[in-house]
């Protein structure tokens, strides 16, 4: 990394995890999204994986792995899921994402 010109480094993508580190959440220990993963195996496109802006959905072989902690509550996953495998609620008690500069 040190051998790289500063210009080069600046023009590199920031990893999603690092991008998300700039956000503030108050994560509820109780997930606000439930995924019936049994329905994911046969899902052809798995659109949630590429369309969830915060990468909450990842694949492992034919399976979809899911974590709700980085969710910004946009609701896209529920809309794009062809299998209706997602039960989506808003986090309660003011928890979840806390936008400050958007």
């Amino acid at each position: 990394m040190s051998s790289q010109a500063p210009e080069e480094r600046k023009r590199r993508k920031i990893r999603l995890e690092d991008l998300l580190n700039n956000n503030i959440w108050d994560v509820d220990p109780r997930p606000h999204i439930k995924l019936d993963t049994s329905k994911c195996r046969d899902c052809n496109y798995k659109p949630c994986v590429l369309l969830c802006p915060t990468g909450c959905y990842t694949t492992h072989g034919d399976d979809v792995l899911f974590s709700y902690e980085g969710c910004v509550e946009c609701g896209t996953c529920r809309v794009v899921c062809p299998e209706e495998a997602i039960t989506w609620e808003y986090p309660r008690s003011g928890r979840g994402i806390h936008f400050r500069f958007s």
Binding site: E7, K10, R11, R12, K13, I14, L19, L20, N22, N23, P53, T54, V72, C74, G75, T76, V79, I97, F99, R100, F101, S102
Partner: peptide, 21 residues
């Protein structure tokens, strides 16, 4: 980081990443 914007944001610091429908 592409041709349109990199020169404007290269010294910037990300403040927030957000999404909405």
């Amino acid at each position: 980081i592409g041709p349109l914007f990199s020169r404007y944001v290269e010294n910037g610091r990300i403040m927030e990443y957000s999404a909405h429908m």
